[in-house]
């Protein structure tokens, strides 16, 4: 569920994917019940389902989409400006965790997905490039920009909007 939520950034879609994954696990129950890697199987299937869902959604709405074709929502601050900000200071654990999840969900899909695959699915750059069917250079660029934009989200200006 965590994997689906972070990749899709949508509660309902994540629930649908999780439900489909459990239904598939049921049909493979005999194999999984005797396998030590059942958890890994579930995670891998969830990841693939989410990526397929994102690809289908992107292809379906490319022609009629309401979303502009820009990659992100606005100009990026330089690294130094982002690092100068205080992140998550003075927040208790629950609020901090919720704020980070919100910031992650607010990232554009193009940056959020490789970031999640790198930090939470522990995939290498090459594996991410293979999964997303793009070049290694693009993955590195997207992850770097994702870090920058996430850092902006975690800064005090963004935090004010949620407090």
């Amino acid at each position: 569920m965590t994997t689906a939520l972070r990749l899709l950034a949508d509660q309902q879609q994540a629930q649908d994917v999780a439900q489909n994954v459990f239904l598939r696990a049921y049909t493979h129950f005999e194999m999984l019940s005797q396998s030590a890697s059942a958890g890994g199987w579930l995670k891998t299937v969830t990841r693939n389902e989410c990526l397929n869902h994102l690809t289908r959604h992107r292809k379906r709405w490319r022609l009629f989409s309401d979303y502009p074709q820009t990659e992100h929502g606005g100009p990026e601050l330089p690294v130094e400006a982002v690092l100068d900000q205080t992140w998550l200071d003075g927040m208790d654990d629950a609020r901090r965790e919720a704020h980070v999840e919100r910031a992650l969900a607010a990232l554009p899909q193009a940056f959020r997905v490789p970031l999640v695959l790198f930090y939470f699915e522990d995939l290498a750059y090459a594996e991410i490039a293979q999964q997303l069917q793009c070049s290694l250079a693009k993955v590195k660029t997207d992850i770097h920009r994702g870090r920058l934009l996430l850092a902006q989200q975690l800064g005090p200006k963004a935090r004010e909007l949620y407090t």
Partner: peptide
Amino acid sequence: TVTYEGCLL
């Protein structure tokens, strides 16, 4: 009006 869930500044 188009809003894209981009980054907050």
